[in-house]
Amino acid sequence: METLHPTSGYTALLLGDLLRELPRAEDFFTSLGLPLPAGDESTETYFGRIPAETLEDLGIERRELGERFTAFMDLLVVLRDKGNGPAIEAITILGGVDKDGAPEDFSLTIRPGEVISIVGPTGSGKSRFLADIEWLAQGDTPTRRRVLINGCAPDPARRFSLEQKLVAQLSQNMNFVMDLTVAEFITMHAESRMLGDVAGITATVIAKANELAGERFSPHTPVTALSGGQSRALMIADTSCLSISPIVLIDEIENAGIDRRRAVHTLVGEGKIVLMATHDPILALMGDRRLVFRNGGIAALLETSPAERANLAAFEEMDARLTAVRNALRNGERIDRL
C-alpha cells in the first residue's frame, strides 16, 4: 500500500489497511466510544450503518463523522512525519520595548544545547518573555518583540500547532496527578508522540531518571508515590527524551534529592535549549549567558565572564560544605563545628 498523504480519501480505505499503516487510527473509535469496524470494511460503510440513536447519544451528526475522521488521520500523519520537518537550528528574539515603552535594543539567538540563565525580580517580565517565544510574537504582543526560527519569520499556522510547541516548562509547583505507575505513565506519553519503539524509550527514560534521583525507584511505583526529588528526576528525564518542545524552561528547581547540574546536562545532551530562571549562583553560572530582566524588558545580556567561571569553584566548595552540614543534621549528628 502507498504511504498515506494528508490528501488521501481515508474514509474509502479498508480499515484493515489503515490500521496496518497507522495502528493508532483505532484511537478515533475508542475516543468516541464506538466499536471498531471490521477489517474488510471501509469507514465510510461503517459510519453509514451506525444507528441514528447512537449518533444522538454521542452528539455527532453522521456527515461530521467522516470530516472528523479525515481531520484525525491528517493529525496522525503529521505526528508520524514530524521528524521529517526542518529541524530547529536557531531561535532569534528581536528586542521590543519595556513597560514604559523604552526600546530594549537586543537581538538574541539561541541554539540547541545552550543554557541561558534568566534573572530578575518577580514581575520583571520573565513570564512575558517566555510567552512571547511560545506565541511566536511578531510585534503583536505588549512587548513588540519578534521571534524568528532559523532566521526567518515562522509560518503563522505554527502558532497553533501542538506538534511544534516551542517551550516545555518544569517548575517547583508541578506534580504528577495521574493514577498510573511510572512505566504506564511514560508509555502513555510515548504513545501520544506516535513513537515506534515505545517500550525501548520508556526503559531509557526510567533509567535516566534513576541516574538523576538520589533514591532509586522501580517502573511499578505509582507516579503519585514518588518523592519530590524522584518526581523532578522523572520529569526531567521524560522532558529530555519525550517532550515535543526544543526549549525547556526550568523554574527554580529545589536542591533536594536531585543532581541539578546533571539534570541540566541531561537536557542539553538531548539537544534541548535550556532556559533557567534561578537566583542560585551555581546554577546561574552554568549558563553561557544570562538575561537580566527589569521593568518588563531585558535590561542586559551578560556573557558569563572568566572571573565568574573561576568563582564557580569557590561557590561549589561553599555549597559542598553546606551540604555536608545538612547531611550531618539528617544523620542526627551535632553541627557545632565548621
Partner: peptide
C-alpha cells in the same frame, strides 16, 4: 491549570483533546 501538573501530563492531555476535536 497547567502550572501544577507535569509537562508530560500537559502534552498527553492536549493530545487527547486533539483526538476528539482535531480541528
Amino acid at each position: 491549570k497547567g502550572d501544577i501538573v507535569s509537562q508530560a501530563e500537559r502534552e498527553v492531555f492536549a493530545h487527547r483533546v486533539r483526538q476528539v476535536n482535531p480541528g
